[in-house]
Simulated scan of single mutants.
Amino acid sequence: GGPLLNMKGEVIGINTAIIASGQGIGFAIPSNMAAGIVEQIKSGKKVSRGWIGVTIQDVDENTAKALGMEHPSGALVASVLDDEPAAKAGIEAGDVITKVNGKSVEDASALLRAIAAHKPGTSVPLDVWRNGKAVTMDVTLGDRQTGVNSGKPSEAGQKQQNQGQLGLTVRPIKDEERRELKLEGKGGLLVLDVDPSKPAAEAGVRPGDVIVKANRQAVSSPEDLSKIVAGEGSKRGAVMLQINRRGENIFRAVPVSSGK
């Protein structure tokens, strides 16, 4: 807790976690993001953010070339959740979202922040690069807190679960997704969404990642991950995630608050 100040004494963020052994390494919620949340609380409403229901990844130089883009920018849609806002608007896997409401997004994290800044239920135009040309699609946003539309919760929304402390929304990976990603063994959690203000985003976890293990323990359900985070993660101050990212095995250490 507490304010994060710049050299002019201006509040630029709210501290959320500090790594004691990292010589000043910490995590904070940007002040402009917090300001919007404060206004929602003051108006007597629940805190909510926009959601479109896709898994995304950054566009690298080779991907941009393959898609006929002049520059590597935007967020590549890796998958689209059934019956969620993006699917209803016609967005497809392989599309690259380049703008939100007329403003450019440079990467996947920028897209998450741009969508989260809009209220659920509003219609937002997205510029999409598809088949060598740009098209615009209007998407009516769902609620990011629940992962469902403002109407009846979908089956996909009911099965996923928000890992609040890490800032992840995950669900068990499906058999067809496992075959597509050529994953061995059983279990694994697909990362659907990453809160840009939480530790997982700072540690480099991305939507589309598959969490295979946490602290060297296999995870098959959101509950498995929650237990490890609340147990060993809380005691040690961090949790080590083993991630499969497009066939590559990587590790990401995510800070965890002790809750004291």
Results as ranks from 00 to 15, higher is better:
residue 1 G to I: 01
residue 2 G to M: 00
residue 3 P to E: 00
residue 3 P to M: 07
residue 5 L to G: 04
residue 11 V to R: 08
residue 11 V to E: 05
residue 11 V to A: 05
residue 12 I to C: 03
residue 15 N to F: 08
residue 15 N to M: 12
residue 17 A to K: 04
residue 24 G to C: 07
residue 30 P to S: 10
residue 33 M to W: 12
residue 37 I to F: 07
residue 39 E to R: 14
residue 39 E to F: 09
residue 40 Q to A: 05
residue 41 I to F: 13
residue 47 V to N: 11
residue 50 G to V: 08
residue 51 W to A: 12
residue 51 W to L: 06
residue 52 I to F: 08
residue 52 I to G: 04
residue 52 I to Y: 06
residue 55 T to P: 06
residue 59 V to R: 02
residue 63 T to H: 05
residue 64 A to T: 03
residue 70 E to P: 15
residue 71 H to M: 10
residue 76 L to C: 07
residue 79 S to H: 07
residue 80 V to R: 04
residue 80 V to S: 08
residue 81 L to V: 03
residue 82 D to I: 03
residue 83 D to K: 14
residue 85 P to T: 03
residue 89 A to K: 01
residue 92 E to P: 00
residue 94 G to W: 10
residue 95 D to K: 11
residue 98 T to N: 07
residue 99 K to D: 14
residue 100 V to K: 01
residue 102 G to T: 13
residue 102 G to R: 09
residue 107 D to R: 07
residue 108 A to V: 04
residue 113 R to Y: 05
residue 113 R to W: 02
residue 113 R to A: 10
residue 116 A to T: 04
residue 116 A to G: 08
residue 119 K to I: 03
residue 119 K to R: 15
residue 120 P to E: 13
residue 122 T to K: 14
residue 122 T to F: 05
residue 123 S to G: 11
residue 125 P to D: 14
residue 129 W to G: 01
residue 131 N to M: 07
residue 132 G to H: 06
residue 133 K to P: 15
residue 135 V to A: 14
residue 135 V to I: 12
residue 137 M to L: 15
residue 137 M to G: 04
residue 137 M to W: 09
residue 137 M to C: 06
residue 142 G to M: 04
residue 143 D to A: 13
residue 145 Q to F: 03
residue 145 Q to C: 08
residue 145 Q to Y: 02
residue 153 P to T: 12
residue 154 S to C: 04
residue 156 A to G: 07
residue 157 G to R: 14
residue 162 N to D: 06
residue 163 Q to E: 03
residue 163 Q to L: 07
residue 165 Q to Y: 06
residue 169 T to R: 11
residue 176 E to P: 01
residue 180 E to A: 06
residue 181 L to I: 03
residue 186 K to N: 08
residue 190 L to H: 13
residue 196 P to E: 05
residue 196 P to A: 06
residue 198 K to R: 11
residue 200 A to N: 05
residue 200 A to M: 01
residue 201 A to F: 12
residue 202 E to Y: 07
residue 204 G to C: 06
residue 205 V to Y: 03
residue 205 V to F: 05
residue 208 G to I: 03
residue 211 I to E: 02
residue 215 N to R: 01
residue 220 S to K: 13
residue 222 P to N: 02
residue 222 P to L: 03
residue 224 D to N: 13
residue 227 K to R: 14
residue 230 A to L: 08
residue 237 G to D: 14
residue 238 A to T: 12
residue 238 A to I: 13
residue 239 V to K: 02
residue 244 N to Q: 12
residue 245 R to N: 04
residue 246 R to K: 11
residue 253 A to I: 14
residue 257 S to V: 05
residue 258 S to T: 10
residue 258 S to Q: 15
